[in-house]
Amino acid sequence: MTIEHLLVSTRHRYEGRPADGPLPAPEGEPEERETIELRAGLGAVGDRYFGHRAHRDAAVTVFDAASLDHVTAETGIRDLDPAATRRTITIRGFPIDSLVGRLFALDSGAGPVRFRGHRAANPCAWMDVTLAPGAFRALRGRGGVRCVPTDDGTLSLGPALLDDDPTPPADV
């Protein structure tokens, strides 16, 4: 399995109507990262959802890059940008959508970080504007899983392990 893309954004860029287009990225704040820091119960350090009560169980979204392959198959559009999905972690090599409601762990070499998968990350109409026409429909049931880290840790791009049956944290 690999971690193909990491995104931390200080700002929610998909506001208003999709036809108006996304807000620009904050100047001088790169959203795409090689490494991200995660904090138990809070999310990705520096992200717009970090520590927000409304996103307590959904501060991090993990997405399967194979879903982009499905969008390509459905629409014929190639070279889709995983950043357009606005998902925190994009992996390849595991059907992440199967982990809704489950505990899982990711380890890219600095030690495992456990996550509690809470609910599906359903796609929105923005996907037709920012990713590809038809992406919204193609991503139904393939939008990833909204979760919260149960451990502090870091994840980096590259080879990784996913454990879909880790030892639960002591407080669960």
Rank of each mutant, 00 (worst) to 15 (best):
residue 132 A to K: 06
residue 82 P to A: 12
residue 45 V to W: 03
residue 101 G to V: 09
residue 17 R to L: 14
residue 126 W to A: 11
residue 101 G to H: 11
residue 59 A to Y: 07
residue 87 R to I: 02
residue 33 R to E: 04
residue 113 V to T: 11
residue 82 P to Q: 13
residue 4 E to V: 11
residue 63 F to I: 13
residue 168 P to W: 09
residue 166 P to R: 05
residue 152 D to L: 01
residue 74 E to A: 15
residue 29 E to F: 13
residue 78 R to V: 10
residue 49 Y to H: 14
residue 112 P to R: 07
residue 160 A to T: 10
residue 45 V to H: 06
residue 116 R to S: 11
residue 166 P to G: 10
residue 92 R to Y: 09
residue 4 E to I: 03
residue 168 P to G: 08
residue 167 T to D: 15
residue 120 A to K: 06
residue 3 I to E: 09
residue 22 P to Q: 12
residue 157 L to P: 04
residue 37 E to A: 11
residue 113 V to W: 12
residue 114 R to V: 05
residue 89 I to R: 06
residue 21 G to W: 07
residue 143 G to W: 06
residue 21 G to R: 09
residue 54 A to W: 00
residue 135 A to R: 02
residue 41 G to S: 12
residue 152 D to Q: 03
residue 69 D to Q: 12
residue 31 E to W: 00
residue 129 V to T: 15
residue 114 R to I: 02
residue 11 R to K: 13
residue 127 M to H: 02
residue 97 D to F: 01
residue 143 G to N: 08
residue 154 T to I: 02
residue 48 R to L: 05
residue 109 G to Q: 08
residue 68 L to F: 04
residue 88 T to N: 15
residue 97 D to T: 10
residue 162 L to D: 07
residue 149 P to K: 03
residue 3 I to S: 08
residue 17 R to C: 03
residue 38 L to C: 02
residue 162 L to Y: 12
residue 151 D to F: 11
residue 163 D to S: 02
residue 86 R to H: 04
residue 123 P to A: 11
residue 22 P to K: 12
residue 142 R to H: 12
residue 73 A to F: 00
residue 156 S to N: 08
residue 34 E to Q: 09
residue 117 G to P: 02
residue 128 D to G: 10
residue 134 G to F: 08
residue 34 E to T: 13
residue 21 G to E: 09
residue 110 A to K: 04
residue 40 A to C: 04
residue 49 Y to W: 02
residue 4 E to L: 13
residue 67 S to Y: 01
residue 49 Y to E: 02
residue 18 P to Q: 14
residue 88 T to A: 14
residue 26 P to M: 07
residue 125 A to R: 14
residue 36 I to H: 09
residue 61 T to G: 05
residue 19 A to Q: 15
residue 82 P to M: 11
residue 24 P to R: 06
residue 39 R to A: 15
residue 9 S to A: 12
residue 27 E to S: 15
residue 166 P to E: 09
residue 20 D to I: 05
residue 12 H to F: 14
residue 151 D to W: 11
residue 11 R to P: 00
residue 9 S to E: 00
residue 153 G to W: 08
residue 140 R to W: 04
residue 155 L to P: 08
residue 26 P to G: 01
residue 143 G to S: 14
residue 5 H to Q: 09
residue 132 A to Y: 04
residue 80 L to K: 08
residue 96 I to P: 00
residue 51 G to V: 03
residue 149 P to R: 09
residue 85 T to F: 01
residue 42 L to N: 03
residue 42 L to I: 01
residue 14 Y to K: 12
residue 85 T to Y: 01
residue 156 S to R: 15
residue 152 D to I: 01
residue 169 P to I: 13
residue 1 M to E: 03
residue 1 M to F: 11
residue 96 I to T: 02
residue 129 V to L: 10
residue 63 F to P: 01
residue 170 A to G: 09
residue 75 T to L: 05
residue 167 T to R: 14
residue 144 G to Q: 04
residue 159 P to S: 15
residue 154 T to K: 14
residue 26 P to R: 13
residue 159 P to M: 08
residue 121 A to S: 15
residue 161 L to K: 05
residue 99 L to D: 01
residue 82 P to N: 12
residue 59 A to P: 05
residue 10 T to Y: 03
residue 88 T to D: 11
residue 170 A to D: 14
residue 128 D to M: 05
residue 111 G to P: 01
residue 119 R to H: 13
residue 147 C to M: 12
residue 168 P to C: 08
residue 166 P to N: 11
residue 44 A to C: 05
residue 94 F to C: 06
residue 85 T to G: 05
residue 6 L to I: 02
residue 140 R to I: 14
residue 6 L to N: 06
residue 30 P to R: 08
residue 83 A to I: 00
residue 70 H to P: 00
residue 170 A to C: 00
residue 72 T to K: 06
